[in-house]
Structures are given as C-alpha cells and as structure tokens.
Amino acid sequence: MSCEAGVSLDAWLAALAEPGTVRPVLNAPNPVLAREGDEVDPTDPAVLRLAADLVATMRVSRGCVGLAAPQIGESAKVFAVDVTGHPKAVTVHGTFVLCNATVVSATRWRPGREGCLSVPDLTGDVKRASRVVVEGALPGTGEPVRLTTDGFEARALQHEIDHCAGMLFLDRVAGAHALYQRKVYL
C-alpha cells in the first residue's frame, strides 16, 4: 500500500486522543448490516471516537483483520483494517481507518475464501480484485488519502467497503456451493 496523502497512517493512529471502547459486533441478519452507510464528516469528533471504537473492537476480536461501522451498529461509511500477522498477508501496512472510502481502480480478479465476524458460522469463496486503489479520508483530520495495495490487504479493503455499502460477503458468493461451515478452533 502506498499512502499518497503525505501523512503517516501509523502517526495518525498514535494521535488518537483516547483508546476506543470495545463494542458488540452485530450478526446477520441485523438490518443495519443490509443498509448503505451514510457519508460522514471525517473532522467530526464523533467520527474520531467511532474510529477508535472500531480499532479497539477489531483488536480484541480473534482473527479479525477489518471491521466496519455497520458491524458495531453505526450506519456510517467508516472502517478499520489491519492484516498484520495474518498468514495470507504479504503486503502489510499496519492499522488504519478510512472514512467515505471508494475503490477507484481494481485489477487482477481472483477468487478467495472470506469470513466475517458478522457471519460467524460460514466462510465463502468470493471473487475480488487482488490490486486496488482506494480513496478516502482520515478520521479526525479529514486528510484525503489514496491507498494502493494488493493481495490479502486489497481483499480486506474491498470487504470493508462492501460493509459500508450494506453488503456482506454472502451477497458476493456464486451460490450455496461456494459456502462452507466455519471450522471451530479451540
């Protein structure tokens, strides 16, 4: 991922004024998950608190690499991503939160297995771009960001942008044959 906004995402994260609150994650078929989120004002202090809550909740959720505002009950276009330490991740750029993000370029489409905290019992095969350019804004400052990434991190970004649009990975699988019971690890 390259950050073409002249800001360090790690420095931004370190500047979060206070730690977030861990919030409950909603499960499908909760209607908030199926509703398109509202665009937000990234400079609104409430959006900065939401960003901190997303990061805090993501960090305590086992295996979580991304979390969107609708998953914690907020119908807003805000999400957090961090693929650090995931075995499928090659390109890794730490923790970041984006507001009002959109995919502006997507190439090299490939199928891959996805899971979701909001669909705890299933995984599914979803075809996604393995290279993306995403534009959004940083919460707190509103600084515009253009991110370029690939592989698993690109998949995670697209998954979270879908959440903000009211979509689950279940909406992208080819059919029941592409769904699998999630393995339970003790």
Results as ranks from 00 to 15, higher is better:
M1E: 12
M1Q: 10
M1C: 12
A5D: 11
A5L: 10
G6V: 08
V7M: 11
V7I: 14
D10A: 15
L13N: 14
A14S: 12
A17E: 14
E18C: 11
P19L: 10
T21K: 14
R23E: 10
R23M: 11
P24E: 12
P24I: 14
P29T: 08
N30L: 10
L33T: 05
A34D: 12
R35T: 14
E36M: 11
E36C: 12
G37Y: 04
D41K: 05
P42M: 09
P42G: 10
T43C: 09
D44V: 09
P45F: 04
A46K: 04
V47K: 01
V47Y: 01
V47C: 05
R49G: 05
R49E: 15
L50A: 07
L50F: 05
A51P: 09
A52K: 05
A52I: 07
L54Q: 03
A56P: 02
A56T: 07
T57H: 01
T57S: 08
R62I: 13
R62A: 14
G66T: 04
L67H: 10
L67I: 09
A69C: 08
P70I: 02
I72Y: 00
S75I: 06
A76F: 02
A76Y: 00
K77P: 09
F79N: 07
F79V: 05
V81N: 05
V83P: 00
A89P: 02
A89T: 05
A89L: 07
T91G: 14
V92G: 12
V92P: 13
V92E: 15
F96G: 08
F96V: 11
F96W: 13
V97K: 07
V97P: 03
L98R: 09
C99S: 13
N100S: 11
A101G: 06
T102F: 08
V103I: 15
A106H: 01
A106D: 03
R108I: 13
W109V: 15
R110G: 13
G112K: 10
G112A: 14
E114N: 13
L117T: 04
L117I: 02
P120M: 07
P120W: 11
D121G: 14
G124A: 06
A129E: 12
A129F: 07
A129Y: 06
S130T: 15
R131H: 15
V132T: 10
V133H: 00
V134F: 01
E135C: 03
E135P: 00
L138R: 06
L138Y: 04
P139C: 02
T141L: 01
G142Y: 06
P144D: 07
R146P: 00
T148W: 13
T149W: 08
T149V: 08
T149L: 06
T149R: 07
D150S: 12
G151F: 03
G151W: 01
F152V: 01
A154H: 00
A154F: 00
A156M: 09
L157F: 02
L157E: 00
Q158M: 13
H159W: 03
E160M: 09
E160D: 10
I161Y: 01
A165P: 07
G166F: 06
L168N: 01
F169K: 02
F169Y: 13
D171N: 13
D171I: 05
D171F: 08
D171R: 02
R172L: 00
R172A: 01
V173G: 00
G175M: 04
G175A: 12
H177C: 07
A178D: 14
L179K: 04
L179V: 11
L179E: 05
Y180I: 09
Q181P: 11
Q181S: 13
V184C: 15
L186V: 15
